[in-house]
Computed example of a mutant assay.
Amino acid sequence: MKKSLIALCLLTYAVGFSQDWTTSFAAAKRKAAAENKTIFLLFSGPDWCDTCTRLDELVFSSETFKAVASKKWVLLRADFAEKKGMPEPFDVNDEKVILAEKYNRDGFFPFVVLLDKTGKKLGKTGYENLPTADEYVAQYVSMGR
């Protein structure tokens, strides 16, 4: 019983503090309009991009980011998996490919674009060698003013 209670508490804590990333641009725009928030669009390659992993660990997992994100942003993620061997043709109708064509034509990873609730670009940034999560969050906040 005691182990079950501890497991339940840990699960509740993890769910309560997890981030609510979406992969649907339409859903992100609806939520941003309903909640009067900015869209935080992240282009990432989590299984092959070392700087993407570092940014996840340094910034996106931080309590500072989570607190600001919950108040200011709708989190939208466009993850691009590594393709082994001969690359297959990509689906031009895949939503992340459409987002990359519009907002990340140069193919930078990681890459953040802040958008208003209609999808208009407010600011963008790549990986910066800033030492703290607070500095990253301040940079993102200043882009979305």
Rank of each mutant, 00 (worst) to 15 (best):
D134S: 12
L115Y: 08
F40D: 14
E95Y: 09
D91C: 10
L41Y: 05
L55V: 08
D116K: 11
A27F: 01
D56M: 06
D79N: 10
E128K: 13
A78V: 03
M1V: 13
L130A: 08
P46K: 05
Q19P: 04
D56T: 11
K2F: 15
I6P: 06
T51I: 09
E88K: 15
E82D: 07
R30K: 09
V68Y: 02
N104V: 13
F80L: 08
Y136C: 00
W73D: 00
D79Q: 04
F111W: 07
V141E: 01
K120R: 14
N93E: 14
L10W: 10
K102L: 10
V113F: 04
G85D: 05
W73E: 01
G119N: 13
A78Q: 02
D116N: 12
K96M: 05
N36M: 05
A67G: 02
S61L: 06
W21G: 00
Y103V: 15
I6M: 02
K120M: 15
R77Y: 02
T51P: 08
K102H: 08
Y127K: 09
L55Q: 13
A7H: 14
P46E: 05
E57P: 07
I39P: 00
G85I: 05
G119Y: 09
T38N: 10
L75E: 14
A32H: 08
P131V: 05
R30A: 08
G126T: 09
A33L: 11
T51K: 08
D116Q: 09
D50A: 14
K29T: 05
G126F: 11
T132F: 01
S62M: 10
L55K: 10
A138I: 07
L76F: 06
A7Q: 15
D91A: 07
P87S: 13
E101L: 09
P110R: 01
K102C: 06
V112Q: 09
A81M: 11
L55H: 06
K31R: 08
Y136R: 01
R145G: 13
R145V: 12
E35W: 03
E95Q: 08
V59R: 00
K31W: 05
A32C: 14
D56A: 08
S44I: 02
T64P: 00
A7T: 12
L42N: 06
K29R: 02
P46D: 04
L8V: 06
N93L: 14
T23N: 09
L5V: 05
D79W: 06
F43I: 10
F40Q: 07
T22F: 08
R30C: 04
D94P: 09
E95L: 11
K124P: 00
R145C: 10
N104A: 15
F17C: 13
G45I: 03
Y127T: 04
A81K: 13
S61P: 04
T23D: 04
N93W: 02
T38I: 13
N36E: 05
S24D: 07
E57D: 02
C49N: 01
K37V: 04
L76P: 06
F109N: 06
Y13R: 01
K29S: 03
T51E: 04
E35R: 05
T125W: 10
A32W: 12
S70N: 15
V59Y: 00
R77K: 12
K120G: 14
I39G: 04
K84Q: 12
F80N: 05
R54D: 01
P87V: 12
P89W: 12
S44E: 02
R77F: 02
V15Q: 11
K3G: 11
F108N: 10
Y103E: 15
T22D: 06
V92H: 07
